[in-house]
Design a binder for these strands. Structure first.
Lengths: 345, 345
DNA sequence: TTGAAAGCGTTACCAA
DNA sequence: TTGGTAACGCTTTCAA
């Protein structure tokens, strides 16, 4: 049986004064005498009083909660982002409530509904992989709940956005491969139609074009961004008569899968085939050879997302009301490692 | 400016009936006529009514929130645990609020205070690495807030516990090394005094003893469980005249560090030196050679922790009140990989 | 400097 | 079957 918590009324009764006086005393209100304040805080301590945030929330109309929704908390990209969000939110006095969408649109909708009921003060989300209808996010905006989309987002939506410039990241990666002398570069993409993968493909194409290399449709493969898919695709690919001299994967997982298969086949990396992945997962610097990858600064992404929320909340309270949505696009960084660094000739 | 949410009163006014009737109608209370229910839900839909969970929480005296505190959300062990907790909590209608302790005791205390104010219905936590004074956790128990400690816990505390049997995990690992023919086994420990590392050390000692191998003090090293520390220790170790033939690390990071250094030195793994880590981090199966490790089932740990909370909550509501604390100790699993598997002779 | 009272949005009990 | 009302714990305005 839960023990009853002390309330303002308890303190007031104890001292035979009014709750409102107690309330003010505890908030150090100027109108209350020092003696009263002393007495009140003493009794508060004795009774182990802790303000009931729920009651305050009801009065203030604000829960002090930020709803955070990601596909899965245990993907390292999102885990880091959550870390960043929590740290900034914490400092500003907000708590974060975590939801997982499991990359499922219905779960997304259900979670948003729960957030509405919880009266979260804002929502930070990375939408489900295959979400194509964004009306449930539009609803958030229509209700004037601050919405910050990170990493994955949709341009049709008028929300704040924090993301990494996938196009640039891919462009950098492919340009680097070309500089290393690669000419026949395979691209292992993710699910086509998903914004981030489309952008990476676009960067790939543009880098080829800018270097006068013809884009070949049959060098691009769609994958589910798993290690296994990377292995299978690579295996199939090496049955062809003409082999590529580089692989640019839109995710580190298939890059690793490719690397494993090629190593097993005795293909020299990076000399026969150079490999670049995307996301800079921890393992890229542990495997042999280490894998060149694109760092997305996920923790920073989370921090910025939280910061935008804080800014918007404080702005809302001032004149600066219908402020335009902010789009913060970070430039990703190419981390060059062994898998793509050919010895200078 | 946030749009005002529709309330029960709004619906009541619209239909010219009483709020209490509306409340009951929406909850499908048997006393309310079908016609009224129909009308009410229609207007509710029109006004886009969503129950205010804060108001309900105030009345019911229950927030429907579980406070979850971990050192860092982005350590994969904790990220998985959070995933497990979220999924079970979700199903039971609870939301989880995340806190990070940064392995700092003061932050822990501050976070607990915030949870008190938020009136969380329960707390699931893995305490900070160097916490030795557990009185702040005792406070939680004293206030009759369900407390479930996972992974890291202290025996002096009368809380529910979900953890992995570190002793057994270490015992299995070391026994395995001995079976592979290793006789001089180094142990890279974590911070001594931390329960989990003490247990792993104990398992190491016992396995040696049970196999008539003398325990040598100078084969045990304390580390901060980083890759770098693993590298440094191994480097120093190899300056000694007598080399060990195996390394059992209490964490995968130093195991990897050791592996990197030894590979660079041309030491054959596992034939010259066998290596076993702990935690089964993803990278253990990606590196070359793959690293044998102890799987801790972190996601399962989280699921069980959440389940214990749910059970306790529902038990509390029934007769079964001061139920004894539950201790669920999972047996970890040794995942044998290349780094310790010597060819059968 | 302190007190009284209304109100935040629900629920639950009792009366009609 | 429906309505009225107190209560949850706090804040805030106005009055004393």
């Amino acid at each position: 049986m839960k023990k009853k918590n002390a309330t303002l009324t308890d303190i007031a009764n104890e001292l035979d004064i009014d709750v409102s006086t107690v309330s003010k005393a505890l908030k150090n209100h100027p109108n209350i005498s020092e003696t009263t304040k002393k007495k009140v805080s003493k009794v508060a301590r004795q009774l182990n009083y802790r303000p009931n945030a729920i009651a305050t929330a009801l009065v203030k109309g604000s829960s002090n909660l930020i709803g955070v929704m990601v596909p899965h908390t245990d993907e390292s990209f999102f885990a880091s982002a959550i870390r960043g969000i929590e740290e900034i939110a914490q400092q500003a006095g907000y708590n974060i409530v975590i939801f997982q969408s499991h990359d499922d649109q219905n779960t997304e909708i259900k979670n948003l509904e729960t957030m509405y009921r919880a009266r979260v003060d804002g929502i930070i989300a990375s939408h489900a992989m295959y979400t194509s209808d964004f009306s449930h996010y539009q609803d958030v905006i229509d209700q004037d709940i601050p919405l910050i989309l990170f990493d994955r987002f949709d341009n049709s939506l008028d929300s704040d956005v924090v993301a990494v410039d996938d196009y640039k990241g891919a462009y950098k990666a492919v340009t680097h491969l070309i500089e290393q002398g690669c000419k026949k570069i395979v691209h292992i993409s993710g699910n086509m139609g998903v914004h981030i993968y489309d952008e990476r493909l676009r960067g790939y194409k543009q880098a080829l074009k800018d270097n006068d290399i013809n884009f070949e449709e049959d060098l691009v493969f769609e994958s589910d961004t798993s290690i296994e898919d990377g292995q299978q695709l690579t295996t199939k690919l090496w049955d062809r008569s003409v082999k590529p001299d580089a692989i640019f994967a839109a995710s580190d997982n298939p890059a690793l899968g490719a690397l494993q298969v090629l190593k097993a086949k005795g293909v020299k990396i990076p000399d026969d085939v150079a490999i670049v992945g995307f996301s800079n997962e921890k393992f890229t610097s542990y495997v042999t050879p280490t894998i060149t990858s694109v760092e997305q600064h996920s923790r920073r992404l989370g921090e910025i997302a939280a910061q935008i929320f804080i800014d918007r909340i404080s702005k809302d309270r001032q004149e600066n009301d219908n402020k335009l949505p902010q789009k913060v696009i970070l430039t990703p960084e190419l981390i060059v490692r062994e898998s793509s660094q050919r010895k200078r000739k």
